[in-house]
Amino acid sequence: MSPDLASSPAEKRAAAQAIEDRIEPGTRRAGEWADEDTGSAVRAFGARDGDGWLTSAALARTHRTWGDQVKNLMDRLGADKGALRDTHRVLTGTDLAVGSTLRRTSALDRF
C-alpha cells in the first residue's frame, strides 16, 4: 500500500478538507491570476486602428481553453472531495448489504 494513500475515514476526511481549504482556493486564485494577465495581453495586442495582431486572437482562444481547463479541474476536485467524504458511507452500506445476503441460502439448508 502506498504510504500516502488515505484509507481510514479520518484520513479521507482530512484529504477532503485539504482539497476544500487549500487546493480548490489555490487553483481558483491561479485561474484568476491568468485571467488578469491574459486579458491585459489581449488588449495590448488588440486592434487600435482597425487592425490588430494575430497574437491577440490567439491569446483570446488560448485563454478560453485555459478557462475550460480550470473549470474542469475545479469540477474534478469537487467530485474527488465528495467521493472522499462519501466513501465510508458507501462502503459501509455495501458491506451491510452483502452481509445481509450471505446467509440467505446454503447447500446445507436442504438436508
Score class of each variant (00 low, 15 high):
Gly50Cys: 09
Thr87His: 10
Thr65Gln: 15
Asn72Glu: 13
Asn72Val: 02
Leu73Lys: 05
Ala47Gly: 11
Lys71Val: 01
Leu91Phe: 10
Gly46Tyr: 07
His88Met: 08
His88Gln: 15
Asp51Val: 13
Asp95Gly: 08
Val90Gly: 09
Arg76Pro: 01
Val90Tyr: 11
Gly52Cys: 05
Gly82Ala: 12
Trp66Arg: 12
Lys81Cys: 07
Gly46Asn: 11
Lys81Trp: 05
Gly78Pro: 04
Lys71Leu: 14
Val90His: 10
Leu91Asn: 13
Thr38Glu: 07
Leu77Trp: 01
Ser56Met: 07
Arg43Tyr: 04
Gly46Leu: 08
Thr38His: 09
Leu96Thr: 05
Asp95Val: 05
His88Asp: 15
His88Ser: 13
Gly78Phe: 08
Leu84Glu: 01
Thr87Tyr: 07
Asp80Asn: 09
Gly93Ala: 08
Gly50Asp: 06
Ala47Cys: 05
Gly46Trp: 04
Leu77Gly: 03
Met74Glu: 04
Gly52Phe: 06
Thr87Cys: 08
Lys71Asn: 12
Asp51Gly: 03
Gly78Gln: 12
Asn72Lys: 09
Ser40Glu: 15
Asn72Gly: 14
Lys71Ser: 14
Gln69Cys: 00
Ala44Leu: 11
Thr65Phe: 14
Gly93Gln: 09
Lys71Trp: 02
Arg64Asp: 13
Ala44Glu: 15
Val42His: 00
Arg48Lys: 14
Thr65Asn: 15
Ala97His: 08
Leu84His: 04
Asn72Arg: 11
His63Phe: 06
Ala57Leu: 06
Gln69Tyr: 02
Ser56Val: 07
Asp95Phe: 09
Asp49Trp: 11
Gly67Tyr: 03
Trp66Ala: 06
Ala97Leu: 15
Leu54Gly: 15
Lys81Asp: 02
Ala41Ser: 10
Thr92Tyr: 03
Ala97Cys: 08
Thr87Gln: 10
Val70Ser: 06
Gly78Ala: 13
Thr62His: 07
Gly52Tyr: 02
Phe45Val: 08
Thr92Gly: 11
Ala58Ser: 00
Thr92Asp: 10
Arg64Tyr: 06
His63Cys: 02
Met74Pro: 01
Trp53His: 15
Val70His: 03
Leu77Thr: 05
Val70Phe: 06
Gly93Glu: 13
Gly93Met: 10
Ala60Ser: 12
His63Ala: 11
Trp53Asp: 14
Ala47Asn: 08
Asp95His: 11
Gly52Pro: 01
Leu73Cys: 07
Gly67Asn: 12
Ala57Arg: 07
Gly52Gln: 02
Gly39Asn: 12
Arg61Pro: 07
Ala58Phe: 08
Gly82Ile: 10
Thr55Lys: 00
Asp75Phe: 01
Leu96Glu: 14
Arg64Gln: 13
Val42Gln: 01
Gly46Cys: 12
Leu77Glu: 01
Asp86Val: 02
Asn72Phe: 02
Phe45Asp: 03
Trp66Met: 04
Ala44Asn: 14
Ala79Lys: 02
Leu54Glu: 13
Asp51Ser: 12
Ala79Gln: 08
Asp49Met: 05
Arg43Pro: 00
Ala60Trp: 03
Ala58Asn: 00
His63Val: 01
His63Asp: 12
Arg61Leu: 14
Asn72Asp: 14
Asp51Glu: 14
Met74Cys: 07
Thr62Ile: 04
Leu59Trp: 01
Gly50His: 04
Thr94Gln: 15
Val70Asn: 01
Leu96Arg: 14
Gly50Trp: 08
Asp80Phe: 01
Thr87Ser: 11
Leu77Lys: 04
Ala83Arg: 10
Val70Asp: 02
Asp80Ile: 03
Arg89Val: 10
Ala44Val: 06
Thr65Glu: 15
Leu77Arg: 04
Leu59Gly: 00
